[in-house]
């Protein structure tokens, strides 16, 4: 009698413990856990008035050798992280250094700029609203869950670096295309972003590999209140 109660209880505790243990392990085994915070940079005049201003510098590499422990060093990747945290109701200026080559994009919808301040992006000093769909390197595309809150949608196409201009110097890429743009964040929430240019070579529709794995060409875009 007693043994049965104790035994059953112990089994439940052990079972729940096992599940909690496995869950903790899986939860900890995220491919990319680091989160990159935006850097404060005073205030900025925007169409929505004066907002707190932040900056964020990102790079896109044709391979992820730059990561010290990438499971797939030959995959394309964003860096230094793929998870970004930015404050709500602020202006964030992104500076993207795009080092990769490119090709025509399969869906030219993503060659058009959307969701940035003034609807433009700045490529190597020039303001544009769209990019030639035949020379896309990657895109930075953020979308939100339609939670009834702000339905975020940002699409920033980034031109490719022509093959002959792509050059390396002691393992470091040089000659990036520099893309700058500013977004104005809405309510807090956890969104996701990914690249909509198919860059998973050798996979079906080139959307496998780095495109379909966490920590390379997709990640979280977290908007916080503080």
């Amino acid at each position: 009698m007693n043994r049965r109660i104790v035994g059953a209880f112990a089994t439940v505790v052990l079972g729940a413990g096992l599940i909690a243990g496995i869950g903790t392990y899986v939860s900890a085994a995220k491919a990319d856990t680091t989160i990159l915070d935006a850097t404060p940079a005073g205030t900025l005049e925007t169409p929505q008035g004066t907002l707190k201003h932040f900056t964020m510098d990102l790079s896109i590499y044709p391979d992820s050798f730059f990561k010290t422990s990438s499971p797939h060093p030959d995959w394309v990747s964003y860096g230094p992280s793929t998870n970004f945290r930015v404050p709500a109701h602020s202006a964030i200026t992104f500076t993207m250094k795009q080092y990769d080559s490119g090709e025509p994009i399969t869906n030219d919808f993503f060659a058009r700029v959307a969701g940035t301040m003034n609807g433009t992006i700045n490529i190597d000093g020039k303001d544009v609203t769209k990019v030639d769909a035949n020379t896309i390197g990657h895109t930075f595309t953020v979308r939100g869950l339609s939670n009834g809150k702000s339905n975020l949608f940002i699409n920033v196409p980034m031109p490719m670096v022509p093959e002959d201009k792509m050059s390396e110097n002691e393992g470091e890429y040089i000659n990036p295309t520099i893309v700058k743009f500013t977004i104005i964040t809405g309510d807090a929430g956890e969104y996701v972003w990914n690249c909509e240019f198919p860059c998973g070579d050798g996979t079906l529709a080139r959307f496998g590999g780095p495109m379909s794995s966490q920590g390379f060409m997709s990640g979280h875009f977290i908007v916080t209140d503080n």
């Binding site: 043994r3 049965r4 035994g7 059953a8 112990a10 089994t11 439940v12 052990l14 079972g15 729940a16 599940i19």
Partner: peptide, 14 residues
Amino acid sequence: IMTGMLILLFAVVD
């Protein structure tokens, strides 16, 4: 359900 199943597991083994 999990609790019930674990109790069943113990019942079977025991």
